[in-house]
Simulated assay, not measured.
Amino acid sequence: MNVVIIDTGSANLTSIKVAIKRLGYNPIITSEPSIVLRSNKVFLPGVGTASAVMKFLFDKGLVNIIKKLTQPILGICLGMQLLCSFSEECEGVKTIGVMKSSVLRLRAHNLPLPHIGWNKIKFNYSHPLFKNIINNSRFYFVHSYIVPINTYTLSTTDYSVNFSSVIQKNNFFGVQFHPEKSGNIGSQLLKNFLEM
């Protein structure tokens, strides 16, 4: 199986690659559109600012490629947020626009920002992505922006406010947390995505 990690010009690509390799796959990190199109599974990671990563994806000709993908794609952290249509970051950034939702600044009352550390995800129904994962399992988060709960929400997390921690529209999936930093439970989620 051809597994691709899209090079978004941001850090953290190696830890995702190592986590996937542990599951018996040999992922390729690339920003080459033709390789992305030929893949069976795609990961869209992201660390840093939405504006910087969107500029990188535009410069590489990847924005329209990502929109057209029919194979499963998993956006991680900022990568999940980029699948939405707009981010409040930096006075407003137009993002990829697969899902009609804005990304908002996390307004956590009396709690430190960014939201860093282990937190629970709560899902209301079974889904192949959650196979062998107990409801209210803890995953590792690092973020200051959120996708509000909407029609695409598969799970929620509470950090003074409830927000979407897993989203899906058709073959497009997103997780706000970092499965590659979430130990065995994160590995299980990656495995579930790869085996869907």
Rank of each mutant, 00 (worst) to 15 (best):
E88C: 05
L44G: 14
Q71E: 00
T95R: 10
S85W: 06
M54V: 08
L82C: 14
L44Y: 12
G48Q: 05
Q81H: 15
E91I: 01
E89G: 10
S31C: 05
L44W: 08
K67L: 13
K41S: 06
G61R: 09
F43M: 04
I76L: 14
K60C: 04
V63P: 07
P33K: 04
G75Y: 01
A52L: 10
N64S: 08
V36H: 01
E91L: 04
I66K: 08
A19E: 09
K21T: 02
I35S: 15
L37H: 10
S15G: 03
I76H: 13
V53K: 01
S87Q: 12
V18M: 00
A19I: 06
S87W: 14
A19V: 14
Q81L: 15
R105Q: 07
F43T: 01
L74Q: 05
L44K: 14
G79W: 01
M80K: 12
K100A: 12
C77V: 06
C77G: 14
I35P: 09
Q81E: 15
Y25N: 13
A52S: 15
P33Q: 06
E32K: 14
C90R: 15
T70C: 15
F86A: 06
A52C: 07
S34K: 15
E89K: 05
I96Y: 00
K67G: 10
K60S: 09
S51P: 04
C84H: 11
F43R: 06
R22W: 00
R38M: 04
C77E: 13
I96V: 03
Q71Y: 05
E88N: 11
A52Y: 08
L106V: 06
K55H: 14
F86P: 00
L74P: 01
I96P: 03
I29R: 15
N40A: 03
V18D: 00
Q71F: 07
G75F: 02
N26H: 08
I29H: 10
P72W: 03
S87C: 14
L83N: 12
M99G: 06
L23Q: 05
F86Q: 09
G61C: 03
K60W: 03
S15Q: 11
L69P: 05
T30L: 11
G46T: 10
L62Q: 01
L104F: 11
V98F: 06
S102Q: 07
L82R: 07
S15M: 11
K68F: 10
T95V: 09
K100R: 15
S39N: 03
G48P: 02
F58A: 11
G61E: 02
I73V: 05
L82Y: 11
L106F: 08
C90Y: 13
K68R: 15
K17V: 09
G48K: 14
M54T: 04
C90F: 15
S31Y: 07
V18C: 02
V53E: 00
V53Q: 00
Q81D: 09
V42S: 00
T30H: 12
M99A: 13
G48S: 11
S85A: 03
L104S: 13
M54I: 13
G24F: 12
T95D: 07
S101M: 15
I28R: 12
I76E: 04
L83R: 08
T70Q: 15
L37V: 13
L23F: 02
R22K: 12
N64H: 11
L57F: 02
E91Q: 11
I73Y: 00
G97A: 10
V93P: 02
